[in-house]
Design a protein around this nucleic acid. Structure first.
Lengths: 339, 339
DNA sequence: GCCGAATGTGACAGCGCTGTCAATCAACCG
DNA sequence: CGGTTGATTGACAGCGCTGTCACATTCGGC
């Protein structure tokens, strides 16, 4: 049978409670004692029983990651990073896919909380911007951390300056000579969408290009919405020479639609995306995009959440850096626009 | 405070133990009583405390999904399916990314088991074919279910007849007039690789085409290995007119390398893959591939695992159907091969 | 060297549930 | 009709840990 705390206590010649103190990093244990106990733990290969721990302490040592996201790669990256942070702090993590548009969405999370009693939640877009959910969490006093929330000036979590990144991207296109730069937006309820769109407008302004509403098409952060959006833009009388997709999936759709129409990228059309998922390198030509360190963001948000849980004081909203990845899908604007 | 089993018992006018019996579907409870108790559970919105449950019963109501897989989409699909099955049976699921090549791989899983005491493990390729791990699990008497293991004639889990699927794919290419059909294999330690390769040879044989070792290049189930493998095949004096990638990532790499070399797909070269991940539709031209219902496989494997756990008798290895998805990346063999 | 405060340690109950086993009851047998 | 099953229910202990509180020890200031 596996070692219990009592065995460690006997081995170290102390009471179980003292062992418990050491394991939980509680103060008021002499150093000598602490070391003796840690040695005994090591020797017996002791691991606390999480169920007993959580039953007795009424803490679950559990963080739940909630997602509702069309991009498995993104979720996977965030999950990986969050898992790293949880492991490092001896917390376990559960994952839960959800449909944030479902009528019983908030209730489902409520059930989840009463069932598993997680110490905190990790929210990805668009869940992190769901007002009713956040209200419920506040009421139930459950801490949470957000990844890329719409409002990045408060709360706990990790963000990226999507507005500046988008602005830079548009300036890059402008510097290549593009004058008609279109944008296929993300899902209107995603926080990211708001900032990427705003950054697009910033970029136009800074490049002294007029904003033309005709050139902004609503998408859904998906491949299909990229295809559909690009088809609409191609049908314009005066079509754009560059299209900025709100994410890489969208941009891949644009590329696909361009190929369908026989347009050469980047000769006839420049295309760029956002996120730098593997797909960005796997399409032809490889996508110019903004690298977003999703895994780091997952790790950082989880760390801030754990800090909040442990200290009771809210952690920070950490901004992580982005990088422009210039690849083959963007190039000089064509002299003359082919239909 | 949240309702406890005692509250339900009081409400229904029975002992806590009887409530427990109902909640655990134990026999020997009168129907009338069962219904009264369920009504009380419903009324109070009672949810058993998983920690207390697992502490008292020495079962964790927990399944761990282990993966070491380069394809996030695949893992995500399996995860989603497995989660559905676990939810339906009131089990929770933890996920754990691992590196099966690491020297301490088996030990890490061992630690995981003694720490969380999962009732069973769900193994994805290539982990499900790791002999040392399986030995350890047998020794520790931990049940597991596999998804697409190399040996699909025994054990518990879900498989797909990859051999027949690959054979059909090759026959499809042969029917289009291709005579030099190449194959870029998967990672040599993956079970799937063995059967896909064998199916490729079956197909050649059934089409009365000679097997040419020059046309089989070792890959790693990755985009990059597809690019590298295709470059090698293009360098052959007598290059293939069709390349069958062991999975869609590989096939996407082949497409990329073809574009790089200026080869038109499918006019100059036919390409096909395996799995039907979203990427297959997102490249240009869309990939002909084999649809593998990964989510169903995750769900089915989890169900079989849960059955094993609950009954003590091993569940089955369930074979799920595949479908050929013919898209634009395959076409009639060229009359004359351009260099 | 004495006293109060700060620090270090342990005894014990109990978290919410289930396993064990005993008690009760109805059905059935000869 | 007494005895024997088997079905149904409950009492109670205890899973492995931590919170609470009491007690022991050390420290600093005068």
């Amino acid at each position: 049978m596996r070692a219990r705390i009592e065995d460690v206590a006997r081995e170290a010649g102390v009471s179980p409670k003292t062992v418990s103190r050491v394991l939980n990093n509680e103060p008021n244990v002499r150093n000598e004692m602490r070391e003796r106990i840690l040695a005994a733990v090591e020797m017996l290969g002791y691991r606390p029983n999480p169920s007993a721990r959580s039953l007795a302490s009424n803490r679950a040592f559990l963080v739940a990651l909630l997602y509702d996201n069309p991009s498995p790669h993104y979720v996977m990256e965030v999950q990986q990073g969050a898992l790293e942070a949880c492991d490092a702090h001896q917390y376990s993590m559960m994952v839960r896919p959800l449909v944030s548009g479902a009528p019983d969405f908030v209730e489902r999370v409520d059930v989840l909380i009463s069932q598993f009693r997680p110490d905190g939640l990790l929210l990805t877009p668009p869940i992190c911007d769901h007002p009713a959910l956040l209200d419920m969490l506040r009421t139930r006093n459950v801490p949470w951390a957000s990844i890329s929330p719409k409002n990045y000036t408060e709360g706990v979590g990790a963000t990226l300056d999507e507005r500046s990144a988008s602005c830079e991207m548009v300036l890059h296109l402008a510097s290549l000579g593009h004058r008609r730069i279109a944008h296929i937006t993300g899902h209107p309820t995603h926080g990211g969408n708001v900032w990427r769109l705003r950054g697009y407008r910033d970029g136009l302004e800074q490049a002294h290009l007029a904003y033309d509403p005709e050139l902004v098409v609503e998408g859904r952060f998906s491949f299909d919405s990229g295809v559909a959006g690009a088809r609409r833009l191609f049908a314009l009388e005066h079509r754009p020479t560059a299209i900025f997709g709100a994410n890489d999936d969208t941009a891949a759709g644009i590329l696909w639609a361009a190929a369908e129409r026989g347009l050469k990228v980047p000769k006839d059309l420049s295309v760029c995306g956002f996120d730098d998922i593997p797909l960005a390198r796997q399409v032809w030509p490889a996508l110019t995009t903004v690298r977003q360190p999703s895994q780091d963001m997952g790790r950082i948000a989880a760390m801030q959440l754990l800090r909040t849980i442990k200290s009771g004081k809210p952690g920070q909203m950490v901004s992580v850096p982005y990088t422009l990845r210039l690849r083959q899908s963007t190039g000089a604007a064509p002299r003359r626009v082919r239909p």
